[in-house]
Simulated assay, not measured.
Amino acid sequence: MKYDVIIIGGGASGLSCALTLASSRGRGWQWAENRNYLLFDVGRSDLNKAYLKNVPGLDPIPGKELLIKIKKQIQQWGGVETLEEEVRSVSRENGVYSVKTALGKIFSADYIVLAVGFHCFDIEGLELEVKENAKSPKPGRVMVKHKDFEALPNLFVVGTLAGLSSHFTSCAGSGVEVACEILSRMAGKRIVIHDVPEES
């Protein structure tokens, strides 16, 4: 099946990207309606082991609970399908990306967002420069070289894979930033997604 965007990774950055993309629906933007998004999430986010006490606006919360809350937010908007499958390879032909899973399934999309974290990068098929993550407090962590989060045409890296600090807010922010960039390209103009008060 063809999707508009495929996000690989279900942590802070991947889920925030999916939530922002989904939230473009129902706003009266014709270009945003009927968009289809696919999220691959095998449950390996470091948030599963975290307890967050310094996220702006949130009471202290276990990372597992926050993941559940964000996933529920995404479901409320709709338009995002989630699969618990490992992605093995990503390739590009004629401007369209193909994603192949460990089960041999193939999906395609115009945009790809890589949000698999900084522990390793073993997705095959892409000519990406993988190097040491200089902002990691531990050795052996990796990042993918990019410019403004774009590593290849319409292929983005977010979170710690983009070389950001390993903190929820920085990683989530990168997912939002990339989603806004993708939505702007879809719209053909700069857009920002946020809620504003209704006029009285």
Rank of each mutant, 00 (worst) to 15 (best):
S23Q: 12
T160F: 01
E199W: 13
W31Y: 12
V144P: 00
I61T: 14
V158K: 02
L21M: 12
G14R: 02
F121D: 02
W77Q: 13
V144W: 06
Q30C: 00
G28I: 01
L39S: 07
E84M: 11
A32T: 08
P197I: 09
A134S: 13
D110M: 01
I112G: 00
G104C: 08
F121I: 01
P56V: 14
V178G: 07
A32G: 13
K145T: 10
R25K: 15
K72F: 07
Y37A: 03
R88N: 10
I6G: 00
F149M: 06
F40T: 00
Q73D: 14
Q73N: 15
E127K: 14
D122C: 03
I191P: 04
P139G: 08
L58A: 05
F40M: 08
V192P: 01
E127W: 00
A32M: 14
H119E: 14
S16Q: 05
R44K: 15
Y37W: 10
L155A: 03
V87M: 07
I191Q: 09
V55R: 04
M1H: 07
G104I: 07
C120I: 07
D46V: 12
E199H: 12
Y97C: 05
A187N: 10
K53M: 01
G9Y: 04
V87G: 06
K2S: 12
G163A: 11
G95Q: 12
A18H: 04
R190D: 12
L38H: 08
V192A: 13
M186R: 12
I191C: 14
M1L: 08
Q75M: 14
R190V: 12
A162R: 00
V99S: 08
F149S: 00
G14V: 03
K189W: 09
F118K: 06
R25H: 09
R141W: 07
A179P: 07
T20R: 11
S16F: 10
K138V: 13
K100Y: 00
C171R: 01
Y111V: 04
I191V: 15
D46T: 10
Y51L: 11
L164S: 01
S24N: 13
T160G: 02
C180S: 12
G159E: 10
I61C: 12
S136P: 04
A12F: 02
I70E: 03
G173L: 02
L19P: 01
R27F: 10
R27D: 06
S16T: 05
E84Y: 08
Q73E: 15
L152K: 05
T101K: 04
A22W: 03
E81Y: 04
R35E: 06
G173N: 03
D110G: 15
Q73A: 13
G188F: 13
I193G: 03
G78M: 14
N154I: 02
F118Q: 01
V130D: 09
H119P: 00
Y37H: 11
I7D: 01
I7R: 04
V90P: 04
V90N: 04
S108D: 08
E127M: 09
M186N: 08
S108A: 12
